[in-house]
Design a protein around this nucleic acid. Sequence first.
DNA 1: CTCCAGGGATGAT
DNA 2: ATCATCCATGGA
Length: 329
Amino acid sequence: MAALPLNFSIEQGTARSTMKFVQIPAPDFDLAMTLKSGQVFHWEKIDNGFCGTIGDRAVHVEQVGKVIKVRGGETPQPARETRALRNIIADYFALDHPLSEICASFPNDPTMNAARDFCRGLRIIRQPKWECLATFICSSVKQVAHIRQISRALRKRFGDARKIDHYTVYTFPSPAQLAKSSEKELRECALGYRAPNLLATARLVHSRAADLDALAALPDVDLREKLCELPGVGAKVANCVMLFAYERLRAFPIDVWIERVLKEKYFRRRRKVTGQRLRAFSETYFGKHGGYAQQYLFHHARMNKTHAYGGRRAVGRQQEGHESACPSR
DNA sequence: CTCCAGGGATGAT
DNA sequence: ATCATCCATGGA
């Protein structure tokens, strides 16, 4: 349901092919930042842009200044296709999110301000529900680089091939495609102990015992509860799926990075901080777009590891935690 | 080699 | 409720 940017245009691709491409104005948007921020794992850097899939469609996306240029794969019906393509792009990259308003709603403190400044143009995209859920089931105790590897393996083995510019990408396998696989096959994609969880959830979704689309009607608390009923899904993964696939922009996933940020920057003075307290704090302090704030904090922290964050060995950062942000109780 | 990674499920305090 | 432990794999 994205409001479409006006003034889109269609031009003839000259450099790589005769394939038409669509130009879409995208102010307040940083494509590379968005795709590298750890919310989505399958986009690959090709030339000056990125290749990937949106749903079952292969696309190449490139940003030139305040415009993004998009080429699709095979185009049986060019006119209809370009119209659909620009809708899909604008919706996927959430170009209708009022980013300046969202950023203005963040709390005003040194940590948040630094992250806001660093992540300018980062948008929370609208991912397909199943793809997002399945990928984050595979994400537990895995580095981003390895999640990307798992995603690639699953796609190549169980998904459908799509060509874009003589380059092949793969759709994310449907619940049906994964439901009929085996735990052994999944383990061969390096899933390890996550394999039975992904398989069980795929079968629940495929059998419609779990209806991911129907869950969209539920309020946050109920949605989180239903997602947590799925094998391999706990509070953290549920919050990621809520944020990245259900557009619940308040959902605040707390992983090891965010936990460090909260403890080191917002609870510096406190000896022991329970998960309960971190949850309560994050749900209120960061406001109604807390999920956005969380993603900015996550990406900023990760891009600056070894510097500000790094556990006990991180010497040289004697920076005062601003306790004013910390609840006095 | 060791340490750690966008955690979850289970069982014991 | 909080904590401890195990789970499987690969990057740094």
